[in-house]
Design a protein around this nucleic acid. Structure first.
Length: 789
DNA sequence: CAGTGAGCGAGCTTCCGCTTGACTT
């Protein structure tokens, strides 16, 4: 009988009077604690229903009626929510208060079959007990205008993506993609690269001096620069000549007060930027670590465009700053969001408890949390008070004058905790100036003129691309990281390091009454973790600009957002808006489909001196390649794949011809030839059917046979240390150490090892049995793929 | 993991935004 009673009780608990549905499970957990036992809080895990994945799933002929389905991975959630909703007295839809959140509530209402009389819609912007109990007191109904604005957004994106992508499959390469967000992101990178390519560096001569100050306060150095720059070396030298006999005097000292204010608390975009600049994190790494911290309740939600802090947080920050630094450092501030299209459904990213200044765990977590804590605290601290000093120094033999700048921090304020970094590494270092008096004579230690070159605009990093996209109002906090990975997966862009080149520059020094000219060397153009367009990226971008200029326009998203806003305000019907867009758009799609020839980006480089045939570069099935001979000539042309870092636009005839020098015999080892070649994955040496990749520092054009043997031996040793077990009677069966732990390899097929078996002690029989029992992982993958369709 | 590059045609690919795990060789 007790068993029976227990069963009844369990059933009763699952039948809560109130069911609250939010988007995120972590949020559900927190809120449940605030609401008490009459409320069961569950999560929808984001969107639950979407356009059918295959096909357009928009009935263009019938007012663009969308065809929705519950997403396959949400069927389980919906089943559970449905049974809870059916028995609840009231269902509270508590999804985010933005377009997407409103749509989620509507889809839930539809899919769960909710009735108006026991459905309420509530919203809150911060996860505090006060905010939630307030929200419960002020329920509303679903805002269908807002829902329709979301449908317009969704349908527009599907139309653009699913009508343009097939054009690319036909005209450029299969499996490519285009979209409102990704195509513009690629365009930014392509156009930046063009700017860099077309950039003509100019130079001028910058003059700097080191003076000696020698007065009652003691002896000190004073660094100063000449505001005027010289265009020619002769002018710079002539100026230094003038300085030889000159007298230098302090002509004026000007001091003025200044201040610095803290940056606002983090949004997704600014967190990604600072984690990139200060911690060297990729955008996706930042989001992964932030997600962990969020799930553990350490920080608030990490996908937000709001800089707002809850009153609770403001109070906690004030208290914490007071405790740590004292009253003078406290300054409560409310920041206003200036970002285009911000929806502000959440708070800024901040520590849940500001009294916790650190967290446990691996370095990434600790560093990211520390960054968030400091940024939040600093945002609520007093301005830094500065004193800036400008000293002008007269030159007796010239009407030019030197200028020395100094900055003294009178009160550090928020700088005690945190200072935002900037993307361009400013070389300006301003320090404290020695005490000086007007009219004071300065001793000259040295004056130098240095040839300085103008810099091209910088290439984007992942984080600076996110910043730019946000400025343009393109993409959302939840899509910045996925967008960057999509355009890399499609091979439109690559994230790479590039070696710089050595550049010479003039350096002229006046010291001890003599002028000495030297030529110095510096490295320029060195890049680390920057985004470069690929040939495909450039080609597709050029194509899309030509035929879909309006969608590629940087203002396209902003202008459709304006229309979505009108729909949200009930001023326009969503399918009316889509109709106006689709007419001319679809006509253009049809028109473009008519064009027969493929885009190959072919470029004639010149003539091969050996054969007298034309040399081309173009995009082939496997990427960019060089070609000797014409395609329509009776003799088959020769082909060679291009190397990483080479582009159709930049490659020269000589570089292209060098590609045909491979594969090349470099010597012998153990009675077999060693050849060096360039394959799909870069340069390699081949010995007895074994490929070994060259290291970054090896040059395939000059590699010696000795180095080749070294690489082959290295690979053999690595293979030995990765081998856990071998069986002499069956050399094709091995137990190996892989990226995801030990596995069994039989004749190039891989098998997982059951958890209860120790890989070190597996016998041949056991290995074969495991293989027998489970299909090979590689086969399984293709089988699953085929079934999924 | 690897040195490829005809042309045809079947059958496939694709968007943006909300959210987390499952799973990887």
């Amino acid at each position: 009988m007790r068993y029976f009673a227990g069963f009844i009780e369990a059933k009763f608990i699952s039948m809560s009077k109130n069911l609250v549905i939010v988007e995120s499970p972590a949020k559900a957990k927190t809120i449940e604690g605030y609401l008490g036992k009459d409320y069961l809080v569950k999560s929808s895990f984001g969107h639950v229903r979407d356009l059918v994945k295959k096909d357009l799933s928009i009935d263009v002929a019938h007012d663009f009626q969308p065809v929705y389905e519950v997403m396959p991975d949400k069927r389980k959630v919906i089943k559970e929510l449905k049974s809870l909703a059916d028995t609840a007295e009231m269902v509270w839809l508590a999804t985010d208060e933005d377009r997407e959140g409103e749509a989620i509530s509507w889809h839930l209402a539809e899919v769960l079959g909710l009735k108006d009389e026991n459905t309420k819609r509530i919203v809150f912007h911060e996860i505090t007990k006060q905010a939630i109990t307030d929200a419960i007191k002020k329920p509303r109904t679903i805002d269908y205008n807002l829902v329709n604005a979301q449908q317009a957004r969704r349908v527009l994106d599907r139309l653009v993506g699913f009508e343009i992508s097939p054009i690319l499959w036909k005209k450029v390469k299969p499996a490519l993609s285009a979209g409102r967000v990704q195509s513009v992101a690629v365009r930014l990178i392509v156009e930046r690269e063009e700017e860099i390519r077309n950039f003509k560096s100019t130079f001028s001569y910058k003059v700097s001096a080191i003076f000696t100050v020698d007065n009652e306060s003691g002896k000190a150095d004073l660094k100063a620069d000449l505001p005027k720059r010289f265009a020619k070396k002769e002018e710079a030298v002539a100026f230094l000549e003038l300085c030889k006999e000159a007298e230098f005097r302090v002509a004026g000292i000007e001091t003025r007060p200044g201040k610095k204010s803290p940056a606002p608390p983090f949004t997704t975009s600014t967190l990604q930027q600072e984690a990139s600049r200060k911690l060297g994190f990729s955008v996706s790494k930042t989001m992964m670590v932030a997600q962990q911290l969020y799930e553990e309740g350490k920080i608030t939600y990490m996908r937000t465009d709001s800089v707002n802090l809850s009153t609770l947080a403001l109070g906690a920050a004030k208290e914490e700053i007071h405790k740590l630094f004292g009253e003078a450092y406290v300054k409560t501030r409310q920041y206003a969001t200036r970002t285009k299209g911000a929806q502000e459904a959440h708070e800024a990213i901040r520590p849940t408890y500001l009294s916790h200044s650190s967290v446990e765990g691996d370095p990434s977590r600790r560093k990211l949390y520390d960054l968030i804590w400091k940024r939040t605290i600093a945002s609520q601290m007093a301005d830094a008070v500065l004193e800036r000093t400008n000293v002008t120094i007269d030159i007796s033999t010239s009407k030019e004058h030197f200028v020395a700048e100094g900055e003294v921090i009178k009160f550090d304020g928020f700088l005690k905790v945190y200072l935002e970094s900037s993307d361009d590494a400013g070389e300006k270092e301003e320090g404290i100036l020695p005490p000086l008096k007007k009219g004071e004579k300065l001793g000259m230690q040295e004056i130098s003129a240095t040839q300085k070159f103008t810099q091209s605009p910088p290439r984007y990093t992942e984080a600076s691309l996110v910043k730019k996209l946000e400025e343009l109002g393109i993409g959302r906090p939840s899509t910045y990281a996925p967008t960057i990975s999509t355009i890399q997966k499609r091979e439109y862009i690559v994230k790479e390091d590039r070696d710089g080149v050595i550049r010479q520059y003039d350096h002229i020094v006046l010291k001890d009454g003599r002028i000495k000219e030297t030529i110095q060397k510096e490295k320029t153009g060195y890049e680390k973790g920057k985004l470069f367009p690929t040939d495909i990226g450039e080609l597709v971008t050029r194509f899309l600009i030509q035929y879909f200029n309006d969608i590629m326009d940087y203002n396209f998203t902003a202008s459709v957002e304006k229309e979505f806003d009108e729909i949200a305000q009930g001023l326009k019907a969503w399918n009316q808006m889509i109709r106006e867009f689709y007419g001319p758009f679809h006509a253009r799609v049809e028109e473009t489909m008519e064009i027969k020839e493929k885009m190959k980006g072919e470029r004639l480089l010149g003539v091969d001196p050996k054969s007298g045939k034309n040399v081309y570069v173009k995009i082939g099935r496997f990427g960019s390649m060089a070609q000797i001979g014409d395609s329509d000539s009776p003799e088959k042309p020769r082909f060679a794949g291009m190397r990483k870092g080479q582009t159709l636009d930049a490659i020269t005839l000589d570089e292209a011809l060098k590609l045909f020098d491979f594969p090349r015999l470099i010597g012998q080892y153990e009675d077999h030839d060693i050849t060096v070649g360039i394959g799909r994955f870069g340069p390699y040496v081949l010995h007895n059917k074994v490929f070994v990749s060259l290291k970054k520092t090896d040059d395939p054009a000059t590699i010696t046979v000795e180095r080749g043997i070294e690489l082959i031996e290295e690979k053999r040793n690595a293979a030995i240390s990765n081998t856990i077990r071998e069986f002499p009677e069956r050399p094709d069966v091995k137990v190996l150490k892989g990226r995801y732990g030990p596995y069994i390899s039989i004749n190039k097929e891989n098998y997982r090892i059951p958890k209860d078996k120790a890989p070190e002690s597996l016998t041949l029989e056991e290995c074969l049995k495991i293989a027998e029992a489970s299909p090979a992982t590689s086969k399984k993958k293709t089988a699953a793929k085929g079934k999924k369709k």
